[in-house]
Nucleic acid binder design. Structure first.
Lengths: 202, 202, 202, 202
DNA sequence: CATGAATGAGAGTTCATTCAT
DNA sequence: TATGAATGAACTCTCATTCAT
């Protein structure tokens, strides 16, 4: 769990044993939801996967939905935590930084396909959390663009349209080349996208 | 129904009365799926909406999933049919044409939110149809870009990355400014996106 | 069902077959609740008893509680309908009429022990219906006493205390001699109670 | 605990600390059962109320039912202990004594509504204890009536019918004016009931 | 073709009870 | 003695699908 925001959705274990059990359920759930989607996943199946009794689920989670929400928030944080250091470390220009972030994101998507699925499905299962995730992500992109504009690196005045456009690009490229296609060269994909972002098609 | 591909999923009515019944179910289903999503929609509720008996559903559709698939294919065709004429009519450059297409798409999304939801949820309910929809859409975009390249209008050699990037942009802008935000000026959104696409950020 | 008051708690069958199914469930439920009490009764068991599928239960009743309420209202009406004619037919004095009513009630209790249990348990399961039953019953007793007073047959001005006292007597005598003791001579019991009611202990 | 009869249902604590824990559980249970009834009460909730660990429950009670039984016996004793002194102290006639007892009972009911509920619900949860309570209570009433008859104070030969009739009166008046109605003047209620008992309606 | 009753597998959830610490 | 995690049987309820009328 990367975030305290989900604190109320799950009970905090008081013992080490409890911590292990909760962790096992969380991991099993991520795998199950990622594979089968929310509705085809069942709590029985999750607890079997986790190697714990059915009842133990309700020791730590209020409901199947609460677990899903907790997972979405967790994954949302994980994506951010994965991409953030790449941006911090980046020394080149702003647009190149977005390219590096995209590549990090693509790699993350490929190696955590289930996270991808979970966040995407949240649009239907936990719309508020889904919204929050994308609004936050867009806000962070916009902040970076604005900082770049302040440094004189941008040819345009950035706004929300740019942020959502970039995010949409990233998500769909993640879907196409990270999730659907296991072979694609992610460096090349990111480079092509970066070129598009920098100079456009014209 | 725009497609013969769904022929097996639904029975073709032999009488006019049957045709009306099937149409009523299809329309009710679009509304229901759009509002509640696939899993929270129920066949009882759809048939009540349609004003037909529960049993009649199975006269025309093999299953709930078959109905959903039929609907996805139908909607996919409708999106295409909505955007195509705009492109045909367009006389300016290739990039501007994409901008016009985006605007048409945003307007469609805003006035047919339920279609949006259905196609999106297909990722989880009918992945093959979802894939087909986006692969087709990307292919059409790529074809247009290649035609533009052949006419010497493009500064880059277009490939699938460009197609998916553009599509991702469009989808997320549709989500943000067509579906989530009912007030946004879609013309401005499309213009900003078009500028980004044409000249990039740099 | 003696009453339309429970109309919303249960679906009205549209076919004869449906009517039979609903009746079977109602009868099975009366037996089951009477034997095991509300909480130890299960819907599975009720439907097995009724010889119908589990799902059929929910075709006719919203929930286990709704069924119980419907039953309480039904039984309440049945008790009333059992006792009313005895009172109408009675030609003697008002106090004797109450005695006759008590005897009719005791006989009913003995031959419908499950009804007794259901109404009693309603105090905990469906308090509103339980209250309504006893408030109505007390009101009817009071009306009779007032009519008797108007005819000059009573030595006291009747009020709610009398009505509830008489009702309490009846209920407990029903419990003791109708339900707990299958051998007691109900005529004698009613006679003794009637003497008490008429002349007191003093 | 007023009674040794529940000795087997609960473990006798060996330490002072244990005694306090058991007491806390007993009090919490009385409140919980009184508020929610047997089935809607849970052991987790009772132990939380009592401020002890869930596991401690089974250190002192065999089961949820055993606890309930212990409580019924306790409450039964408490009702008796409340009413007895009033009878002992009473100097007037036997019927007036019953009136005073009723008033004491009504006051007790009003200020211990949960006890009322617990004993009443015992009819369904612990029928044997419920029976025992009412058989005992009736036996005590009958004894008093017989003593009064021996002193020549009664116009009738008392029997079980009288005892149960009086008890039923008392219970229902307790329900109506002690539990349901918090405003009623209990002195007046008892007086009216007493007059009825003494001279009847005729 | 239309109707709606019947079916039952399967889901989420609760909670008394056990037991390792 | 106290603690609280673990257990799983049992329950209520849903709903896609079948089928007799």
């Amino acid at each position: 769990m990367s975030a305290e925001s989900s604190a109320r959705a799950l009970r905090i274990p008081r013992t080490e044993r409890g911590r292990r059990t909760q962790r096992a359920i969380l991991d099993a759930a991520a795998a199950e939801f990622g594979e089968k989607g929310f509705h085809d996943s069942s709590i029985v199946s999750i607890t079997i996967r986790a190697g714990v009794a059915l009842g133990s689920f309700y020791t730590y989670f209020e409901s199947k939905e609460a677990l899903f929400k907790a997972l979405v928030q967790d994954m949302s944080g994980r994506v951010r935590d994965q991409v953030a250091p790449v941006l911090t470390a980046h020394t080149g220009g702003a647009v190149e930084a977005e390219g590096a972030a995209l590549e990090a994101f693509l790699r993350f998507a490929r190696s955590h396909k289930e996270i991808y699925r979970i966040i995407d499905e949240a649009e239907f299962v936990a719309p508020d959390d889904w919204r929050a995730h994308y609004l936050n992500t867009a806000a962070r992109i916009l902040e970076r663009l604005q900082a770049a504009r302040d440094r004189g690196e941008l040819g345009v005045e950035p706004n929300e349209v740019h942020a959502w456009a970039i995010m949409g690009m990233n998500v769909f490229l993640g879907l196409r080349f990270g999730v659907m296609d296991a072979e694609a060269d992610l460096g090349e994909v990111a480079a092509a996208a970066n070129a598009l972002l920098k100079d456009g098609l014209g």
